[in-house]
Nucleic acid binder design. Structure first.
Length: 727
DNA sequence: GCCTCGGACTTTTTT
DNA sequence: AGTCCGAGGC
């Protein structure tokens, strides 16, 4: 009965993927092939038909949204039984394990999770401790490097071991300091959540065995996006029962920059010689032209395991390619088209989505949408929880639960202003360092020794903190927030400001409290308090997860954010060399391949209508730059495209012949066109040698190029004098 | 300690 | 064109 309900409506391959419960299984699930369906039905089948206890099943996803959706759908199939199944992101899974087990590693269970800005600030601090200049630029680069190390599974010792030169050795030393500072603050960054869990399982086999036995069935979604640490974690968790089902699509691997290793999925059969493989090639989402066009693009990647998606829907309309003068022109067209569809064809706004390569590209679209009063939502971008006032409020909560959290203390010591400025904090810092104590303890001694404003303001502040530490732990998240905002005088200070900005902040804080009220506290079997759970969730959640893609709004998002979603009508804007593929990727062939997969991901989100747009001119960094059509446009077969299209290899020929000519456009040639240069192109300078054009600015005699030279770094040169050779 | 100004830098993509 | 950060003045 239940078995029938669960297997009904699955095609033979999907059914095989659901019914093959024992042993390692790789499900190669092409775009739109019903991957989520397979995952949810498989979980339901395990519990509802095979009789596996819900707590013995672990399903790991990448986004909270995917986890939430999966839980929801499993619940529909299974009912309340579903609640005992662990369905969570990698990070949430690790937090849950670490909150229980981190004591084995000599760390406290009350750790906080540092976000990116906390982590960056801590890297700066680490640089300072090494007597190095904590320039924002260097700090960011090092932060990135540390993250890569963590993704690769390397602790400081491992990083030092592999250091090839003095510079890398130094970096590894700062990494070690960074880790020490994190430990002192009783904090973990994102990478630590995974890395420390793997370390825990490595060093404590009995702990590992406990979880291995518990999770008799492990499922992993988006396996093509796993990095080294995640690979090891999965390996550890599924190590005993080996009932491991991974689902993914090599063609949709788009997180290599974040340490994801596409080989994890490509080598699955090698790693598990007894693995069964199921390939889902039937696409239920897109019409034929769209699918064929997208497929042709991704086929340009070499070494790609052959996979051909079969459209199950009709031919549909062709892919539209559109050229524009600039980004405003482009935005106008997109909005007009959507308005026509809504007013003329009776469609809803929610049927439309616009994708772009970088978040900054949402701007002109938003302006145009606002002009016509069209409802829209920007997915991703600035997170709600990243707003200053929200972070301040949360910092109070964090500090109340974890007095060692130096970053939280630094954040709120003087917010609202109470006379505890930079100098006082520096003194506190010094005291803390010399007595090996927390920043808060350092501050206590400074305040005790002080007179005047620091003394009075400091004492009031310390009393406030002690009171919060005493009273908050028992409260609900919403009560705790309200208490903080009142007792600290934070809300009062904002209200007294009376500016529109301050009002907006007050509004955001209200929203935060309202969100906390809605926070689900159904946490049976959890050993975290509701407040702790709330803070964990806030640290791990993204806007992408909470944004409701409602039917009455257009969705704007990056191509990355679009992964896993589908829309009847999709616009991909900014299809220009240097933007998509992004200039940072255009030098490295592997990176271009990833961009190509990203393009494939974007295109395959479309069900019925797909329009790709490029603009000849675009404002970037506040100046106008000129562009040529993306190479990906030239890779879409003629037969799947309607109307105007740039000829294949337009970028190349524009380069050779002077841009514009070969494209046969009636367009007033700009200086950049005459020079035949555009962002993304390769040039040779008589002195600096070969390089890549980053941007073209200005016009006429004053026209300049910003070029990243392979050997000489980034320089700005005047076209008139530079004597550049192309190629 | 606080504020204002100027300059550098930004835009990859995110759990 | 914005934003962020540091220096310098009050």
């Amino acid at each position: 009965m239940l078995a029938q309900a669960i297997l009904e409506g699955l095609n033979p391959e999907q059914r095989a993927a659901v019914e093959t419960t024992e042993g390692p299984l790789l499900v190669v699930a092409g775009a739109g092939s019903g991957k989520t369906r397979v995952l949810t039905h498989r979980v339901a089948y395990l519990v509802g038909v095979c009789g596996i206890a819900p707590e013995n099943v672990l399903a790991v996803t990448f986004t909270n949204k995917a986890a939430g959706e999966m839980r929801e759908r499993v619940r529909k199939l299974l009912g309340p039984d579903a609640d005992a199944i662990w369905v969570a992101t990698f990070h949430a899974t690790c937090v849950r394990i670490l909150r229980r087990e981190i004591g084995h590693l000599g760390r406290s269970r009350g750790f906080v999770i540092y976000d990116e800005s906390d982590a960056l600030a801590l890297v700066k601090e680490a640089l300072r401790r090494h007597g190095m200049d904590p320039r924002a630029d260097d700090a960011r680069r090092l932060r990135w490097r540390i993250d890569q190390w963590k993704n690769a599974g390397l602790l400081p010792a491992g990083a030092a071991e592999r250091a090839a030169d003095l510079e890398a050795e130094q970096a590894a030393e700062v990494y070690a300091t960074y880790q020490r500072l994190l430990a002192e603050a009783n904090a973990l960054d994102f990478g630590d959540l995974l890395l420390l869990t793997v370390e825990l399982f490595d060093r404590f086999p009995e702990v590992r065995r406990h979880y291995q036995q518990r999770f008799a069935y492990v499922l992993v979604d988006e396996y093509q996006d796993t990095n080294r640490v995640q690979y090891r974690l999965v390996d550890q968790l599924a190590g005993e029962h080996r009932n491991l089902c991974v689902v993914g699509d090599p063609d949709q691997s788009v997180y290599g920059w974040r340490g994801a290793d596409i080989r994890n999925i490509l080598d699955f059969e090698r790693d598990h010689p007894d693995a069964r493989v199921v390939v889902l090639e039937r696409n239920y989402r897109s019409t034929q032209h769209i699918l064929a066009g997208a497929g042709a693009v991704v086929e340009n990647n070499p070494d790609r395991p052959k996979k051909t998606m079969l459209a199950q829907r009709g031919e549909g309309r062709r892919i539209a390619l559109q050229e524009f003068l600039d980004e405003r022109d482009e935005a106008q067209f997109v909005v007009q088209r959507i308005l026509e569809g809504v007013r003329g064809e009776g469609r809803s706004y929610g049927q439309y989505a616009v994708f772009y390569r970088t978040n900054a590209q949402s701007r002109p679209l938003e302006e145009e949408l606002l002009k016509y009063d069209v409802p829209y939502v920007v997915v991703g971008g600035v997170r709600f929880y990243d707003r200053a006032e929200v972070k301040d409020a949360l910092a109070y909560l964090r500090l109340a639960l974890n007095p060692a959290d130096g970053m939280a203390l630094r954040r709120i010591a003087n917010r609202p202003a109470r006379g505890l400025g930079k100098a006082t904090l520096e003194r506190a810092e010094a005291r803390a360092a010399e007595r090996d104590a927390t920043l808060l303890d350092g501050l206590r001694t400074v305040v005790a020794d002080a007179t005047g404003r620091v003394r009075s303001g400091g004492e009031a502040f310390l009393e406030l903190l002690d009171g919060l530490a005493r009273d908050l732990p028992g409260l609900s998240p919403a009560e705790a927030l309200t208490t903080v905002l009142e007792r600290s005088g934070y809300l009062r200070a904002l209200e007294q400001e009376g500016t529109p900005e301050a009002e907006a902040r007050v509004e955001n804080l209200r929203e935060l409290v309202a969100g906390a009220e809605d926070f689900e506290t159904a946490n049976a079997g959890e050993d975290r308090s509701p407040l702790e759970l709330f803070l964990d969730q806030v640290a791990l959640v993204t806007d992408l997860d909470s944004s409701d893609l409602r039917d009455d709004r257009i969705s704007l998002m990056t191509a990355h954010s679009a992964k896993g979603l589908e829309f009847p009508f999709v616009f991909l804007v900014g299809m220009e060399e240097g933007i998509f593929p992004h200039q940072a990727s255009s030098r490295d062939e592997r990176a271009v391949e990833e961009e190509r997969r990203l393009c494939y991901v974007g295109m395959t989100r479309a069900m019925e209508g797909l329009t790709l747009c490029w603009a000849r001119e675009r404002r970037r960094f506040g100046t106008r730059t000129f562009g040529v059509p993306s190479r990906f446009l030239g890779e879409i077969p003629e037969s799947t495209v309607e109307g105007m299209r740039p000829s294949p290899g337009a970028a190349r020929r524009a380069f050779d012949a002077g841009a514009g000519r070969s494209l046969d456009y009636d367009y007033d040639q700009s200086a950049a066109d005459r020079a035949g240069v555009a962002a993304g192109m390769r040039v040779r300078h008589p002195i600096f040698g070969p390089g890549t054009i980053l941007a073209v600015t200005g016009a006429g005699a004053g026209q300049k190029l910003r070029i990243r030279f392979d050997r000489a770094g980034v320089k700005t040169v005047l076209v008139r004098y530079a004597n550049l050779e192309l190629g």
